[in-house]
Simulated assay, not measured.
Amino acid sequence: MNLTPDQIDAIQEIVNIGVGRAASVLNEMLEAPIRLQVPYIKIGSPLDFQSEMETRLGGEQVAAVRQDFSGSFSGLAELVFPTDSASILAAVLTGEELGTPDLDAVRIGTLSEIGNILINSVIGSISNVLNQRLDYAIPSYIEDTVENLINVGDNQQENTILLAQTQFFIEQLQIRGDIILVFEVGSFDVLLDAIAMLTTV
């Protein structure tokens, strides 16, 4: 899918608004100062991203927080980390030592909360800025392959993926994660139409 520079800029701006809101909330909650930024976004099909993401995230299993959304457009949102980065992020934010028996349970709880805040902030920004109604499901923590995370639904290869690479900066520690929005068939066109209406007002 080929988007115009204006469309890409508009999507980037909306995602950045959401990430900025999430950073503010997380900084109020956590003792470790956290800074978030989204260097770039990409749009394509699951096939376009699978190989790239497998290489960048490393290994077969990745950690993710997933949340379905529906309404004016529908799909799912995921915050995805390499499993090692997920453990480091949880350890830094909770003070738990890497390798301790309690870290797995703590990691799931911590990442679920971070994912919930970040995903809701991004989806909420899309909803608010574009004045579109969206409903959210309860987020869930999963560990799975990249292939299974991006190939969802009945018409998998017809879905549109919006990939936003996210960088978490915490006390000199740089952790990368990905925000993945998978729009079901036709939903991304609705998003672009809403952006077009906004920019022509």
Rank of each mutant, 00 (worst) to 15 (best):
G109F: 01
R176S: 13
G115Y: 11
S45Y: 08
A137S: 15
N128A: 14
G177E: 11
G59P: 07
L173Q: 14
I108K: 15
L36Q: 11
T166Y: 02
M53D: 09
A86C: 01
I34D: 03
V122R: 06
D144E: 14
E60H: 08
V19S: 07
N2I: 13
G71N: 06
I123G: 02
Q167V: 13
T55Y: 05
I170K: 01
E60A: 07
S125Q: 02
V146T: 11
S112K: 15
Q167A: 08
E96C: 13
L163P: 00
D178E: 14
V146P: 00
E97L: 13
L26S: 03
I150D: 11
A22Q: 08
G115P: 12
M1G: 14
Q157W: 00
V201G: 06
E184G: 10
A22L: 03
E97R: 12
Q157K: 10
A164N: 03
T110W: 00
L93K: 02
E97I: 04
A63M: 10
S127L: 02
R133M: 12
N2Q: 13
G177L: 09
D193V: 01
G18Y: 10
T166W: 03
N27P: 11
Y40H: 12
Y136I: 15
Q174T: 10
Y136D: 08
F81G: 07
P39N: 09
L47K: 12
L36N: 07
S125L: 05
N120T: 10
G115S: 10
L118E: 11
A196L: 10
S112Y: 01
R35A: 13
M1A: 13
V38F: 04
D84C: 01
Q132M: 15
I126D: 03
F168V: 06
M29N: 06
F49M: 05
L192Y: 04
F183H: 07
I117Q: 06
E78Q: 15
E113A: 08
F168N: 04
L89S: 05
V80N: 04
I161E: 03
T83N: 11
I142S: 13
I195P: 07
I161T: 05
Q37T: 12
Q12L: 14
E158I: 04
I119D: 06
Q167Y: 09
G20D: 03
D84V: 14
R35C: 00
L181T: 09
T100M: 04
T83G: 01
Q172P: 00
Q37V: 00
Y136R: 15
Q7E: 15
L134T: 13
N151A: 03
F73T: 11
S85W: 00
T94S: 15
S140G: 10
E78D: 03
G59V: 09
S127C: 09
G109M: 07
F73N: 04
T100G: 05
N27A: 05
D9E: 09
V25W: 01
D104C: 00
I41R: 06
G153M: 07
A164M: 09
E171C: 00
L36M: 13
L103G: 05
L181H: 08
E158R: 12
